[in-house]
Design a protein around this nucleic acid. Structure first.
Lengths: 336, 336
DNA sequence: GTGAAAGCGCTAACAG
DNA sequence: CTGTTAGCGCTTTCAC
């Protein structure tokens, strides 16, 4: 347990019960070769002293499983919680545990949470890190900055502290979305982008695909906004004002898309009749919205599996595996 | 690290670098009193051997912080993820870590996940456990079933394996909801209840309050359903058929309420004009729905804080504190 | 600046 | 059935 100084140890229990420490172990672990009377006496003593075994000592001698730290910005965001769910389940297949670290906005708090996490874990999975979040990890504190703990990032940009990336096929996904819209007669496709740097690949893919198809494209039909519900509602106001002739909107993620649907409803714009909407991530909330959200579905289990595989390789060999890439598949529901 | 048999130890590094093991510690931990040349040689050796410090050994000698295991049924459900968020943040205030365990439906898998979790944690927080989930915890394996690890349950029923409960003021919440509906002219209030036993308190509170106010109440205006979105959509079908004159529905939780809103929309029932809807839990998704959901808001941070306080007391004294109770406060949005 | 000793709390392998 | 002897891998004294 939490190595509370002054806590009772197995020796205290042995003394209290008047037996050897091995007998205490036997009694406490329900092993054979001990008389009921002795066992009861030992357990009684343990209870009296409020004894709890020291986890670290047990782990040292028994061997401990792998613990993965999962760093997220905001676990209340369903994207992160669905990822956390996928990661814990995938990790569990290997007998690994996941230690959660929900950073939040506050930088000082984040730093201290990360510091409390690091001594606890064998590896790190990073996701959705804003500019700067990775910087919070005290590289210098990790073995002198020279032997960091294995770290993979989900869908981010390379960083010296990160050993491996799991990529997302933004280009393929955006292409599928745009092509779907075009196939259904849409010609003026707007974009609600992320105002965070990691959002850039999707933004670029959107421009590329529109240009490739020879569709009209201009700056007024693109808006960058915070990656939140509110960001979506606000963005749609700007977009409709700047480019009232849009007949479709591609949205950076499903949470923002929920906001976009709300914003469109407020303005009395019918979805999908007047404007089609496609989100991204394939979150379960997409099915709760009205109309139900068409989205680029990210296979979170595959994503998690690649991350765990990469960590496994790093832990085992110290070398990262080839970068894996996860597809985005269009899931057509009602909004487009 | 994960005590991989055959992994390099500090002694291997010392041998490789031709120094003593303390020198290795000093080099690796960036301590003073070591020449740059030696440090570099040690680090080089460590890298060559792919050395990683053994976490358990470090924890044993440095002392480890408290790790809390958090058991949930399905982390993709936003109720659980918002609770997980609140719990990790609250735990972090004390420097504690949270190890996540997402059980899922599969009983065998759940059991093995719990077994992988237990040796890792000092305490357990249980929430939303179906009938039987608690039974998965191998009481017998825990120190002979006599010294379990401290366990608190969030809003459940007493169980021998559970040391402390944090309760929710269902009665007060339901009362506030019913009274709000009545104050706004509603007289025929139906209920979408949970088909799980832990849902009983809200169900009873609903009946009590209706009776106390002398409102009409009959079995046809109560439906029990699974605690899911789908459960909500299905329930509303049954309810509208059995009791078409309802002018309000109280729903067991917000996820189900999302389904209820969807079901009502499908049947062309206007909310709140024809039927008012009130959910429960105060989830963020409530704000994404159309109309936005009126709900009984549970203060998840307070909930988590009580849980952590209880664990702290259990860890420190072995005795549970007085049972705490968290209120449900009515948050009025558009649906009622 | 570096090395040698001691011990964290526990369990596994032998003795008796 | 119970006790004794060795470590697990690391850090912290303390010598040199």
């Amino acid at each position: 347990m939490a190595t509370t100084p002054g806590a009772a140890t197995i020796l205290d229990v042995a003394r209290e019960a008047g037996v050897s420490r091995q007998t205490v172990t036997r009694a406490l672990n329900g092993m054979a070769d001990i008389s009921d009377a002795t066992r009861e006496r030992v357990l009684e003593a343990a209870r009296r002293l409020h004894y709890r075994p020291n986890r670290a000592a047990q782990a040292l001698v028994r061997g401990s499983g792998v613990a993965v730290g999962f760093l997220v910005e905001n676990l209340s965001n369903p994207y992160y919680s669905e990822m956390a769910s996928a990661l814990t389940r995938t990790a569990a297949e290997r007998g690994w545990n996941v230690v959660l670290c929900d950073l939040g906005d506050d930088e000082a708090g984040s730093r201290s949470r990360i510091e409390a996490l690091l001594p606890r874990v064998d590896a790190l999975v990073l996701t959705g890190c804003r500019e700067g979040t990775v910087g919070l990890i005290p590289l210098e504190d990790l073995r002198g900055g020279l032997l960091g703990i294995p770290t993979v990032m989900l869908d981010g940009t390379p960083h010296p502290a990160v050993d491996a990336l799991v990529e997302v096929d933004h280009a393929g996904g955006v292409r599928a979305a745009v092509d779907h819209l075009v196939a259904h007669g849409r010609r003026r496709i707007g974009l609600v982008a992320s105002d965070q740097l990691p959002g850039a690949p999707r933004h670029a893919a959107y421009r590329d695909r529109l240009d490739a198809l020879g569709l009209h494209r201009d700056a007024r039909s693109e808006v960058a906004a915070p990656e939140t519900y509110r960001g979506g509602t606000d963005a749609v106001e700007l977009l409709l004002t700047a480019a009232p002739d849009l007949d479709a909107v591609l949205v950076y993620n499903d949470v923002m898309a929920a906001g976009v649907l709300k914003g469109l409803a407020r303005r009395g714009v019918a979805v999908p009749d007047q404007v089609a909407v496609i989100g991204c991530d394939g979150l379960e909330i997409g099915g709760l919205l009205s109309p139900e959200l068409t989205t680029l579905d990210l296979d979170k289990t595959a994503f998690a599996r690649h991350a765990v595989d990469a960590l496994d390789a790093l832990l085992r060999t110290g070398r990262p595996p080839a970068t894996a890439r996860v597809p985005l598949t269009l899931t057509v529901r009602a909004s487009a």
